[in-house]
């Protein structure tokens, strides 16, 4: 484990905790896209199929359980919690799941490392993770007032992706035969999706004004 990978995992963890904290303490999910959260739950459910069959490390297993547990509980909060669900902006969060899920599934059926159920699901989870943030970004653009926590959540997610790329560069030069095109290209696409958001995030931070994305 290198420092970039650890920092990446920690920012990923922080992003999830920020979101859970917001929902749990303020009892509000305003500005949070249920579509994106459901897609993440699907991403983790399909990627961590090996959780009980292949033991890598205690760290790995615990992190997987945290990401699975947190993503499903966020979905539960927005859908079922009697106070939180009232703040859900259903009319603004209109992105269609299948618009992202179907192309990713087709791509996974065509481009994968091995044609086995687990490998296809694993490739699918990578492709879906790359685009799962889109409903959230669209919602942010529509919501004129982005609260600090939602802004920080998206920022931390983007930082996690950027750190993973540094991790791959590091591993490429330090580990023999560390070449994973599927992971890298999907990861690069995912990180690029945050570029626009990052630009406005830093601008608002630099000028000390509230974050607003242009329509």
């Amino acid at each position: 484990m290198n420092i970039f990978r650890l920092a990446g995992d920690m920012t990923h963890l922080a992003s999830v905790l920020v979101l859970l904290l917001k929902i749990h303490t303020i009892k509000s999910c305003a500005g949070v896209s249920l579509k994106t959260q459901e897609l993440y739950a699907l991403v983790f459910a399909t990627r961590y199929l090996d959780i009980f069959t292949d033991f890598i490390s205690l760290y790995n297993t615990v992190m997987k359980l945290i990401f699975l547990g947190s993503s499903f509980s966020i979905v539960w909060y927005i859908r079922r919690h009697k106070i939180v669900r009232r703040s859900y902006d259903k009319d603004q969060d209109t992105f269609r799941h299948y618009f992202l899920v179907l192309p990713c599934l087709l791509l996974a059926l065509v481009i994968h490392e091995k044609f086995t159920f687990r490998e296809v699901m694993w490739a699918f989870s990578l492709y879906l993770e790359a685009v799962a943030i889109l409903p959230q970004l669209v919602l942010l653009q529509r919501t004129r007032n982005i609260d600090n926590l939602t802004g920080q959540y998206v920022f931390l997610l983007g930082a996690y992706r950027a750190l993973y790329i540094l991790n791959w560069i590091y591993r490429y030069f330090t580990e023999p035969h560390f070449v994973h095109w599927i992971t890298w290209i999907a990861g690069l696409v995912q990180t690029l999706l945050y570029a626009d958001f990052f630009y406005y995030y830093f601008e608002s931070w630099k000028n000390n004004v509230k974050l607003q994305l242009p329509a």
Partner: peptide
Amino acid sequence: TSESILKDEL
């Protein structure tokens, strides 16, 4: 092998 390295990421 490449596969075992791959699966150690989250």
